[in-house]
Simulated scan of single mutants.
Amino acid sequence: MKILVLANFGMGLYNFRKELLQELIKQNNEVYISLPNDEYVPKLKKLGCKFIETHLDRRGTNPFKDIKLLFDYVRLVKSINPDVVLTYTIKPNVYGGIACSITKTPYITNITGLGTSVENKGLIQKVTLMLYRLGLKKASCVFFQNETNRNFFIDNKIVKGNTRLIPGSGVNLEEHKFEDYPNWDENIRLLFIGRVMKAKGVEELLKAAKMVKKEYPYVNFDLIGGTEENYNQQLDELEKLDIVKYHGKQSNVHSFIKESHATILPSYHEGLANVLLESASSGRPVLASRVPGCIETFEDGRTGFGFEVKNVESLFKVISNFIKLPYEQKKAMGIAGRRKMEKEFDRKIVINAYLNEIKKTMDKERYNEPIRKTS
Rank of each mutant, 00 (worst) to 15 (best):
S101L: 10
I358R: 03
M333W: 06
E175W: 09
I98T: 00
A99C: 02
A280W: 04
C141Q: 01
G113P: 12
E119S: 14
I264Q: 10
R59V: 05
H261F: 11
G304Y: 09
N352L: 12
S117N: 11
C294Q: 03
N151I: 14
I188E: 09
V41K: 08
E186M: 09
I158H: 12
H55Q: 14
C100G: 10
R290F: 09
Q250V: 12
G60S: 02
L70K: 04
T89G: 01
I257N: 07
L134G: 02
A262W: 08
M362E: 09
F64T: 09
L277P: 13
Q233P: 02
K177Y: 14
V309C: 14
E342Q: 15
K121G: 03
R133Q: 10
T227K: 14
L265C: 06
P292M: 06
I166R: 07
S79I: 00
V74H: 03
N187L: 05
Y327E: 15
P326C: 03
E39I: 08
F143H: 02
G225M: 08
R290T: 03
K46N: 14
E53M: 06
A280R: 08
R339W: 06
R290P: 00
K210Y: 00
T303E: 13
L272E: 08
Q22L: 15
I323Y: 15
D38K: 11
Q125D: 07
G201T: 07
K2I: 11
R150N: 10
V94M: 02
F322R: 12
D222H: 08
L325N: 13
G248D: 14
V291C: 01
V41F: 05
E357P: 08
L315T: 00
D346F: 07
N28A: 14
F71G: 04
L265K: 05
I257Q: 02
E186A: 13
K177W: 11
F305Y: 14
M333E: 06
K45G: 12
A288W: 03
Y73E: 02
K198H: 08
Y218L: 02
L123D: 00
G293M: 00
R133Y: 05
D242Q: 04
G248K: 09
T54R: 12
P182F: 08
G10E: 12
E204W: 01
I351A: 06
N156R: 11
S282G: 07
L265F: 11
A353L: 04
T163P: 04
T89E: 01
L70V: 11
F51D: 09
N151C: 09
G113A: 00
N252K: 13
Y216H: 15
S282E: 05
R75H: 08
K340W: 05
A332L: 13
R195L: 10
G48F: 09
L114F: 06
F305T: 04
M211D: 13
E259M: 13
I90Q: 05
G301L: 13
G115Q: 00
T87W: 00
Y95F: 15
K324H: 11
V196H: 06
Y73Q: 02
A262E: 03
K104P: 04
E328I: 06
R284N: 04
E313Y: 09
F298D: 09
L13S: 08
K360L: 15
E179A: 07
N15I: 10
G161H: 08
K207C: 10
N356I: 00
